[in-house]
């Protein structure tokens, strides 16, 4: 668990954090959402002491992070940044092995871990190990950045606008990858973004920040349904609040029994969201969509009016 208690920070005359109180539960995928200057990056960088507070404290599992030396603390917390920041003079393998090397792992253990992580991020180890960062695409480089952050198996991962510089397709793929990694590893992930869609797609806990303070914190659904502040409503609405709500709901939770259905209904995977179900109906000009499990067997029927219950 990570807890911010009355944290304040100024850079010269600029007040970045103005009394931040925030709790991130263990195992959460927490997203700090806000416009530029909201203080979200500053807050993130206080968790691994890249920035120290002027006042207040940051507790990691009940212990003030200020009690631990910065470098030692950072070696057990993964850190991914927007610019990726791969070391351009090191190979992919050396980049991924950076933190294990600092921790004094032996070479064989590091090499094995590098292969394991490349495989985890769906990059062929034999093809990528010895490449230089300059030979990677943006999406590949960011995967290596994530692999490097995971190298020493930290139980906390900090991500500062990690996908901001990527094209929409690559960004979507990496977001899906992060959601999968979070589900598979149970790590606590804290991600900073100004992208509402990204926040809603990834967050299990969503914290909206403005002017250096926390405005509202909760599940994405809670914030969409009961925004406590006009700034939260404005940020999350964006003229698409209905679609955003649909995208948070599993289509399966709205489905009725499939029974006897016409064969020409569009079919989508049973794990799809309500938004994907609507999209499939609109695309096929159909009033319902059939959910099918991975074997192709019908798993439920979602009609257009079922979506109103989302």
């Amino acid at each position: 668990m990570i807890r911010f208690e009355g944290v304040r920070k100024s850079f010269g005359a600029t007040r970045a954090l103005d009394g931040l109180d925030l709790v991130v539960p263990e195992g959460a995928f927490a997203v700090l959402l806000g416009g530029s200057g909201a203080g979200k990056s500053t807050a993130l960088r206080m968790i691994n002491r890249l920035i120290d507070p002027d006042a207040g404290r940051v507790l990691l599992r009940g212990r003030d992070v200020a009690q631990e030396a910065g470098p030692a603390l950072r070696r057990r917390i993964g850190y991914v940044i927007q610019g990726i920041g791969l070391f351009p003079h090191w190979t992919v393998a050396r980049n991924i092995g950076a933190v294990p090397r600092l921790l004094g792992w032996d070479d064989r253990r590091i090499a094995a871990r590098v292969n394991e992580l490349l495989a985890l991020l769906r990059l062929d180890p034999s093809a990528y190990r010895d490449r230089m960062p300059g030979q990677l695409s943006g999406g590949q480089a960011q995967r290596i950045g994530v692999a490097r952050a995971l190298a020493a198996d930290p139980d906390i991962l900090l991500m500062d606008e990690p996908f901001g510089a990527l094209d929409a397709v690559t960004r979507g793929a990496l977001q899906a990858e992060m959601a999968r990694l979070h589900g598979a590893t149970g790590k606590t992930i804290i991600l900073v973004t100004h992208d509402v869609e990204e926040a809603l797609a990834l967050a299990t806990r969503l914290a909206v920040m403005a002017d250096g303070r926390l405005v509202q914190e909760g599940t994405p659904r809670e914030l969409l349904d009961t925004p406590c502040d006009p700034r939260v409503r404005d940020l999350l609405d964006g003229g698409a609040i209905g679609m955003r709500r649909l995208s948070l709901v599993a289509a399966a939770s709205l489905a009725g029994p499939s029974g006897d259905v016409p064969a020409d209904l569009p079919r989508i995977a049973a794990g799809a969201t309500g938004r994907e179900a609507l999209e499939a109906m609109l695309a096929a000009r159909a009033e319902a969509v059939l959910l099918v499990d991975p074997n192709g067997a019908p798993a439920g029927l979602v009609a257009l009016r079922d979506l109103l219950r989302a």
């Binding site: 691994n48 890249l50 910065g70 470098p71 030692a72 603390l73 950072r74 070696r75 057990r76 850190y79 940044i81 927007q82 610019g83 990726i84 920041g85 791969l86 070391f87 351009p88 003079h89 950076a98 933190v99 600092l102 950045g145 490097r148 900090l158």
Partner: peptide
Amino acid sequence: VPRDVLDAARGAGMTPRQVLWQV
């Protein structure tokens, strides 16, 4: 030396001396 590379080096837990010599 790019700022994000230095940020990543510090974030990985390098001491100032390690950042200087290794990066």
